[in-house]
């Protein structure tokens, strides 16, 4: 699936998007997989209460299932307006 990062999450991880092969069932499992990869991921996902997630461009939750999802995006709380 495609995993996208925005704002300081993108800066901390060092890339805007990547393809990830995963068998994670939920967003949280995907986060744990990414965290175990490298320190920069662990740093970006250290406090998930400071993060939001969107599944296929819809705001979602970290306990949401990933079945059928093609695009996951992680970002800090939005600051529009």
């Amino acid at each position: 699936m495609d995993v996208l990062y925005f704002a300081w999450v993108r800066e901390r991880i060092g890339l805007p998007r990547e393809k990830v092969e995963t068998s994670a069932n939920t967003v949280m499992e995907l986060v744990e997989e990414l965290k175990s990869r490298e320190e920069r991921y662990a740093a970006a996902f250290a406090d998930i209460s400071a993060l939001r997630v969107a599944l296929d461009q819809e705001l979602s939750e970290f306990d949401a299932p990933l079945e059928g999802v093609r695009e996951v995006a992680f970002f800090p709380p939005m600051t529009g307006g």
Binding site: M78, T79, G80
Partner: peptide, 8 residues
């Protein structure tokens, strides 16, 4: 818009 539109 402040907290539900994906702008940073």
């Amino acid at each position: 818009l402040k907290s539900r539109a994906p702008f940073w």
